[in-house]
């Protein structure tokens, strides 16, 4: 059950004088259970792309196949609930979606809408409250009494509690402290390991290199590259032309390579980099 975008184009304000292209002829295929990073500079169409995953926006032309649904310009706005149960989206600054009296009720809101009984939904809510790293004491508090970071986690739990097969995230870690950032990213990686598909929009190239196994690069509403992180991040000039940068590990290893060190393959994570350097140093010592 892979995700297929087939020549998807989207026009904002279609047939008005304010018409503007959002996406142009975007085609790709994502494997079930993959972790895909979507990168591109501000205004490149990443968020527009994301809204096509659960038919919040419908393609002006082309079609999207996802979770057994096929969405094109003619798809009705009714009966999309089963799709949205399958495809969860955590928007940028999702804390603005909180509204319930208590944290637990807010997290249970989604699952209950998707047909879980009140009891089951609340059980899920407590489970996900723990999984996003919050104390159970918070369950009965008002979400508006929490700190910004805690609100973010509650909002993320509110989507993940529905346990969608495809989880889409728009800059979920923006503005979190470094520890919170890492915890929340680990949570998504674990969710993928449990067999779910994860799509992550990010400006953080280190995150893309570290967690993703597939990268989509957007520029001016077009998909300019779809490849593995190692391939995407290898060419600093190409990235620069698309207003992007290399992850710290890649930049560091390429600097070392210029100084004479040799790498068999591009180290994407810090541990890969450390391992590669250790091997070299050991080899030189012998």
């Amino acid at each position: 059950m892979s995700i297929i975008f087939n020549k998807v184009s989207y026009l904002y304000n279609q047939n008005t004088s304010l018409e503007q292209p959002g996406l142009q002829d975007v085609s790709f295929k994502l494997k079930t259970g993959s972790f895909t990073a979507v990168i591109g500079h501000t205004g490149s169409g990443k968020s527009t792309l994301l809204q096509h995953f659960n038919a919040l926006l419908k393609p002006t032309s082309g079609s999207v196949e996802i979770a057994g649904f096929k969405i094109d310009a003619a798809t009705s706005n009714k009966g999309l609930k089963p799709l949205r149960q399958q495809v969860g989206i955590v928007f940028q600054f999702p804390e603005s979606q909180l509204f319930e009296e208590t944290v637990e009720k807010d997290i249970a809101f989604g699952p209950q809408n998707f047909g879980l009984s009140e009891e089951e939904a609340h059980k899920r809510a407590r489970l996900w409250l723990r999984r996003v790293g919050l104390s159970q004491d918070l369950a009965t508090r008002s979400p508006f009494d929490l700190s910004g970071g805690q609100m973010r986690r509650v909002a993320i739990a509110g989507i993940m509690a529905s346990e969608p097969a495809v989880l889409c995230l728009d800059e979920p870690a923006a503005g979190l402290d470094p520890q919170g950032h890492q915890q929340i990213m680990q949570l998504f990686k674990k969710y993928q390991a449990a067999g779910h598909t994860v799509v992550l929009i990010t400006h953080d190239m280190d995150d893309a290199a570290r967690y993703a196994d597939d990268v989509l690069v957007m520029d001016h509403g077009q998909l300019v590259k779809h490849a593995s992180p190692a391939e995407v991040f290898a060419d600093p000039d190409w990235l620069h032309r698309h207003h992007l940068e290399q992850p710290a590990t890649v930049a560091f290893s390429q600097a070392l390579a210029r100084a004479g060190m040799q790498f068999e393959h591009l180290p994407l994570t810090r541990s890969e980099l450390v391992q590669a350097i250790c091997q070299q140093v050991k080899g030189a010592g012998q």
Partner: peptide, 19 residues
Amino acid sequence: DQTVKIMNAQRTRGVDFNE
């Protein structure tokens, strides 16, 4: 903009404004 954003977020959580 904020209204559209919040509506989208709640639609994603299974709210149906049409039914």
